[in-house]
């Protein structure tokens, strides 16, 4: 496992390159198949509205998968992630059009820990709402 970022080159406050991830209905159908999560709230608008949602929503685990990409793309080797946790605070609502929704992810180094590890705090928003809370990863740098 080999991170391309050196521990000595980062400090508390170092910002990771932010990224924006588009999500359409097609994305969700594909994620449902790949993950095995076929809950209809992620593809059936009628069902989603019946259970009180504004529209079809993205899988929380899809959002979690996108958010960590800001960290793994930065570190180079996803195998250096030693810890990753999130709280699902608001759903990512995905309308049935060709644009869908956007998940905007930013992250920064929040603490330098032992054994060349750092804690990275991640923020993820969609439609200006925070969709993940307490979103943190610990990664082992070079």
């Amino acid at each position: 496992m080999t991170a391309k970022i050196a521990y000595d080159d980062v400090e508390v406050g170092t910002e990771l390159p932010a990224q924006t991830f588009p999500v359409t209905r097609a994305t969700l159908v594909r994620y449902a198949g790949a993950s095995g999560d076929f809950n209809p709230i992620h593809w059936n608008e009628k069902f989603a509205k019946e259970v009180g949602l504004p529209d079809v929503i993205a899988h929380g685990m899809f959002t979690m998968a996108e958010a960590i990409r800001v960290v793994t793309d930065w570190a180079g080797d996803p195998g250096v992630v030693v810890e990753y946790g999130v709280r699902f605070t608001k759903p990512v609502v995905v309308p049935n059009d060709d644009k869908g929704a956007l998940i905007e992810v930013a992250a920064k180094v929040a603490a330098k820990l032992e054994d060349n590890t750092v804690r990275v705090d991640i923020t993820a928003t969609s439609d200006d709402k925070k969709v993940l809370g307490m979103s943190r990863a610990v990664v082992r740098l070079a």
Partner: peptide
């Protein structure tokens, strides 16, 4: 789903 965390 409320929270999710992994330790690897």
């Amino acid at each position: 789903h409320g929270d999710q965390r992994f330790v690897y």
